[in-house]
Simulated assay, not measured.
Amino acid sequence: MLKKLPLIILLIISSCSKKPQMIPQSLGELKLDKFLVGKEAREFINQMHVSGMVAGDRNEVGFYSLDTLKAVLYISKFKSSEIAEQKLEQMLIKIAHGGTPFVLHNQFRIQNRDIFLVFGMGQSHYIYADKDKLIWLSADMPISLVVLHSFLKQKM
């Protein structure tokens, strides 16, 4: 039994890491329906981009809903805040130059964060860097501000 103890501990730790650590269980009244963490989240994020490898060292994606209203939260954690800021800047440059399904609409400041609002694919998208994390929050327009404010109130 003692010889198997390290294996049992490893299995317990690895199963615990399959739960989201960065995304909340709800955004306003929207509830978390499904989530991706680790390799699944990284692959999902990278598949959405033509350029390939854009995901961070740790990644989580949360899918939220209430009736017909939907939101998706993408969080990529990088080695440093500088890398997160670089990734944000690269994304905004691509959006500004066109060739993506998004249109850069506005920039505003909330809680000492520069948040960029883009529109596309029928949703509002809020993008910003928070320390070593890059956040992309997509939400149906009728609930997008409520969802954003709910997320900003929560601790990550």
Rank of each mutant, 00 (worst) to 15 (best):
M1S: 14
M1R: 13
L2D: 13
K3E: 13
K3F: 13
K4S: 14
P6G: 10
I8A: 11
L11N: 08
I13V: 15
S14C: 14
S15R: 01
C16P: 04
K18Y: 03
K18C: 12
K19Q: 13
P20D: 05
P20L: 12
I23H: 00
I23E: 01
P24R: 09
P24V: 05
P24T: 08
Q25M: 14
S26M: 08
L27S: 01
G28A: 07
L30W: 02
L30I: 08
K34L: 15
V37I: 11
V37T: 14
V37A: 07
G38D: 05
K39E: 15
K39S: 11
K39R: 14
E40N: 14
E40L: 08
A41M: 08
A41Q: 04
A41K: 03
R42I: 12
I45W: 02
Q47T: 08
V50A: 15
V50L: 15
G52I: 09
V54D: 06
A55Y: 01
A55E: 04
A55T: 01
G56E: 00
D57G: 02
R58M: 14
N59D: 11
N59A: 06
F63V: 12
Y64P: 04
D67Q: 11
T68S: 12
L69F: 15
K70H: 13
V72Y: 02
L73N: 01
S76W: 02
K79M: 09
K79I: 10
S80A: 06
S81A: 15
I83A: 01
I83H: 01
A84E: 00
E85K: 09
E85N: 12
Q86S: 11
Q86R: 13
K87H: 09
L88K: 07
L88S: 04
E89T: 09
E89N: 13
E89V: 08
Q90V: 10
I93W: 02
G99P: 02
T100S: 14
P101K: 00
F102V: 02
L104M: 09
H105G: 12
H105P: 03
N106P: 11
Q107G: 07
F108D: 10
F108I: 05
I110K: 12
Q111I: 03
Q111G: 05
N112M: 08
R113I: 04
D114W: 01
D114R: 03
F116E: 06
F116G: 05
G120R: 01
Q123T: 12
Q123L: 09
S124P: 04
I127A: 06
K131R: 12
D132M: 02
I135D: 03
L137D: 02
S138L: 11
A139K: 02
A139V: 01
M141C: 06
M141H: 08
I143Q: 06
I143A: 05
L148K: 03
L148V: 00
H149N: 15
H149R: 14
L152A: 04
K153Q: 15
K153W: 05
K155N: 13
K155I: 11
